[in-house]
Design a protein around this nucleic acid. Structure first.
Lengths: 228, 228
DNA sequence: TCAGTTCATGCGCATTCTGGTGGTCGAAGA
DNA sequence: TCTTCGACCACCAGAATGCGCATGAACTGA
């Protein structure tokens, strides 16, 4: 984990840096707005501690520049206690958190930990199988980057297969997970949907295991048995 | 966006609630820890304002119970100025933010806005989707730069959809976040509002995903039928 | 009254289901 | 090894279902 500290007060900067390093982080330092902006723009940080009152370039400006350039790393801003409007400005500029001076260093540490933990939670929930990508959060799927148009049952089927990649999934298992309770087991709906899915994502991905069910696997990893 | 306020001071609670409602949020109130815990456990909130000093059940305890039950909504805690150890305890219990009493209500509002948009993964106070811009700070929206005239429910709908851009949002989810507690789920109100919104912002932006719900996306990213 | 919201109705059509037909696979016997 | 047979599976196309939308009337609170 790499952290940037932008703070013009040399003592405070060192104090923060030392504490963070002690906690196991890698830390870069900047002592004015311009330097801070340059570093934050070019290097990949997991979090930034940014003082609002800075020489050369104001903290809020730095933050705005980062955000409008698409930088999304979590930023913790430091403000003076009596400048509560600074906080509001900072937050609206895209700060993820703030601490008012004077502060306890442990508190900053706790908040940085929280920020990093939270940022990790935003990792997109995607499952990939060969050319197929499933975005479980957005209920979307793509093949070779092209968005697929799937009906809700088709999507549920694909989703279940991809969540159990490499495993053989029986028809009854699929039925039970795609439908609520009572469903006429003597129908070939599953086969129909498998057929439709194959038509959309390509035939190679869903393998049928005769007598048992279906298995989804990236092509190339297909079971190469009895090829002799 | 639906918010829970847990605060035993009746005046403060009402003050917060009024301000939030004015800003367009749906607000539920609780006046002690037990009631707060019960509501937060059962209803889906987009954010919670939680006082630490509460009768019946301590704020930190409430928060811990929620977190260990898997509730992940952003929580803003209110602490007394001189009790900085409370803050650390609250943060360690899983609070996303804190404000010390006494505070400016605007500050709480700004932080709630920040929490909600951050939970949705947005860095700035403005969310853009194609020609539509949502200004979470001013509770306004524009299409191609022209201000939209939206009723409060229309705005809430648009806001929720834009905060969850790219994701499929179900009808029940929308109902739960646009209304407080009791609402007849068996009606087509949501569909009516979606229809009205589409009329105002254009048909292309809100895609309906049959059987699942609605998804807001910039045009051009719309799903294209895969060639069979 | 009027703007905003909710409810009820009917239509159009995407989606899903069904039954039938023909194809494929694999085991067993010659 | 080749053939045969039964079980299993893929595909098709028509039928049925029920979802989503538009519309307008009823309702409600400023």
């Amino acid at each position: 984990m790499r952290i940037l500290v932008v703070e013009d007060d040399v003592n405070l900067n060192r104090q923060l840096t030392d504490t963070l390093k002690e906690a196991g982080y890698v830390v870069d330092q900047a002592f004015d707005g311009e330097e801070g902006h340059y570093l934050g723009d070019g290097e990949p940080y997991d979090a930034v501690i940014l003082d609002i009152g800075l020489p050369e370039m104001d903290g809020v400006t730095v933050l705005e520049k980062w955000r409008s350039a698409g930088k999304a790393m979590p930023v913790l801003i430091l403000t003076a206690r009596d400048r509560w409007s600074d906080k509001v400005a900072g937050i609206d500029a895209g700060a993820d958190d703030y601490v008012t001076k004077p502060f306890h260093v442990e508190e900053v540490l706790a908040r940085i930990r929280a920020l990093i933990r939270r940022a990790a939670g935003h990792a997109t929930s995607e499952i990939v199988c060969g050319p197929v990508r499933l975005d479980t959060k957005g209920s979307k799927a793509t093949v070779d980057g092209v968005a697929l148009k799937l009906t809700s049952h088709e999507f549920r089927l694909l989703s279940y297969l991809m969540h159990h990649m490499g495993q053989v999934v029986s028809r009854t298992e699929l039925v039970e997970h795609m439908y609520d309770q009572d469903f006429d087991r003597d129908s070939n709906t599953i086969e129909v949907f498998v057929g439709r899915l194959r038509k959309k994502i390509g035939n190679d991905l869903i393998e049928t295991v005769r007598g048992l069910g279906y298995r989804m696997q990236p092509p190339g990893m297909a079971s190469k048995e009895a090829k002799s």
